[in-house]
């Protein structure tokens, strides 16, 4: 069993993401609130054109605007929630995967 890192310090998490982003062709932009506290991050693929970036931001704003109506109907999830399919079990090795790993091994020993 692997556990997710559990943590109640979202700012620390943002800083980790920001750090990891340096290893990828992405730009992380801080979204700060009052007194410079870190509210979130925008992550963009590097090399996006200005219009592409504006279009993407436009979508986020639209989603944010629709949020007050959406939430009561569909539940309280934040607008950019992690897809539900990414649950704890999504990494479990399936029987099909095992079967293929083992089929190769059986061929080996013959």
């Amino acid at each position: 069993m692997t556990s997710y890192i559990s943590c109640n310090d979202p700012e620390a998490f943002f800083r980790i993401i920001e750090k990891q982003a340096r290893h990828y062709p992405v730009e992380a932009t801080r979204i700060t609130g009052k007194e410079e506290n870190l509210c979130g991050l925008f992550l963009f693929r590097k090399g996006l054109s200005r219009p592409e970036r504006q279009k993407a931001l436009g979508r986020v704003l639209k989603m944010a605007a629709a949020e007050p109506e959406r939430a009561p109907e569909e539940g309280d999830d934040p607008i950019c929630h992690v897809p539900k399919t990414l649950g704890e079990d999504s990494c479990q090795v399936t029987t099909e995967e095992r079967a293929q790993l083992f089929s190769f091994l059986k061929r080996e020993s013959n």
Partner: peptide
């Protein structure tokens, strides 16, 4: 190593590192 448990465990580790 060339043994089923090692191969399965290596695969499982890669799968976690990839998906998470």
């Amino acid at each position: 190593s060339p043994d089923p448990t090692s191969m399965t465990d290596a695969y499982a580790l890669i799968k976690i590192l990839h998906s998470r």
